[in-house]
Design a protein around this nucleic acid. Structure first.
Lengths: 232, 232
DNA sequence: AGGAAATCGAACCGAGTGGTTCGAATTATT
DNA sequence: AATAATTCGAACCACTCGGTTCGATTTCCT
């Protein structure tokens, strides 16, 4: 059931009457319903009637806003992707202490990726990737790929500061990401874990991952600096 | 279409007439058809009629062998899992040179996991994991989990031989696996890559992964041995 | 208040769903 | 050749699917 009170509240906020299929409030309402249905049933099992019910919007209206089921799904995934990766990489914007920054970023990343909602979204995308490969590709490209690129910039910066010694930064960026997720992602996505890992567990994995990463790529200068700050 | 010639060949091999729903040949024939349909359409989108067509077996017969769609699917995944992880860990049974063994195992693992067929199977399982979580859990438990346990035994052996220094072997085993797949698995499963990575690309990733792993966990003894064999 | 427009709601379409049933055809054993 | 059993193949069930249509209703702007 939909909350009609909240619905009218939303409507009251509109400045003027939008053109057919152009009201962003209604659009959001539809997508929110679609989110609930698609995420917990997958693309195929989800029916437009379910979404109609869940969104509290008539079927006719949905088809004014979206061409068909697939387009609605893509719009949803597009939005999901946006909220997942938003503000995820800003930790990398200003770094002082390299190790701390890596841990902070690794934590943010790992917490996000293994959260119940994000795992479910990823499952849905993966499950649909067979039938709509472009969707999966676009999700990866505008999500994980973008983060990877950002990570490369960060690592290059660290290299040019003499803190890291890396010959293949591209590969190293992947390795860092994987180290921060060691085991967790796979367990979550196969629903071997039914709940998201705890904060402390993630911290353990990330700290160890950063240790491994820095033992492999940390420069003498970095270790010297760390020893110095240890004494102070 | 099914190859009826091959079919009768199969039938000719049978020793005696099996009980209804007990012929392993027919069962295999059904599962093979189910494999083609399920793998490339996913659980929901696949129809029993598709499978009927693809397997060249009448619908009534399928329902003699399997209770319903879900049970057929589970039987298929069970078999897939078996073939995927068979003979994967035997590389670890006798190790002489640690680095070489790790590379060999990492290669076998990475090649297998990122192969087109295995990726598709994993996508199907992941996609179905929302509706049938036990299936995903069982797949992980009897597949990746088992491999992880085997890897822990191996690492413990290496530790007791003084070649590695690891405080958390469980975590280290995960890290090793992830390092061998760095980036590849994620790209494949989201169909950002449409083809499996090349042998040489995998080798690059695995060699680097092993490097990182050994820099983090390799003991002085190991490095001394490696320097020695370098001279010889 | 009047009029234009967006939404609703429900019926409808053809196709396909998983699952069942049953007589006909095929098969292997005796 | 006769018999017993499995498989086939097709029809059938009640239901749902995505998608379309259209008149009734609600909504907002003038």
């Amino acid at each position: 059931m939909v909350d009609t009170t909240a619905d009218s509240d939303l409507l009251d906020l509109r400045k003027g009457r939008p053109a057919a299929g152009q009201d962003p409030m209604k659009r959001a309402q539809i997508i929110e319903g679609a989110r609930r249905v698609f995420i917990d049933k997958g693309f195929e099992a989800a029916s437009m009637n379910d979404i109609t019910r869940e969104a509290g919007v008539s079927k006719g209206t949905i088809y004014v806003y979206f061409e068909n089921k697939e387009e609605l799904f893509e719009a949803l995934i597009e939005e999901e992707r946006g909220t997942i990766f938003k503000n995820l990489y800003e930790v990398l914007d200003h770094f002082d202490d390299l190790r701390k920054t890596l841990v902070k970023f690794g934590m943010a990343l790992s917490v996000k990726i293994t959260s119940a909602r994000v795992i479910q979204a990823q499952r849905t995308v993966v499950g649909a990737a067979d039938r709509i490969p472009e969707l999966g590709a676009r999700f990866y490209e505008r999500g994980p790929k973008r983060g990877h690129d950002r990570m490369m910039v960060f690592l290059n910066e660290a290299v040019s500061r003499g803190l890291l010694t890396i010959d293949d930064v591209d590969l190293a960026a992947y390795q860092f990401t994987e180290l921060c997720l060691a085991g967790l992602f796979r367990q979550c996505i196969f629903s071997y874990r039914t709940k998201a890992p705890s904060q402390s567990e993630i911290e353990k994995v990330v700290r160890s991952g950063v240790d491994v990463f820095l033992k492999a790529y940390g420069s003498e200068q970095l270790f010297a600096e760390e020893r110095a700050s240890q004494l102070a």
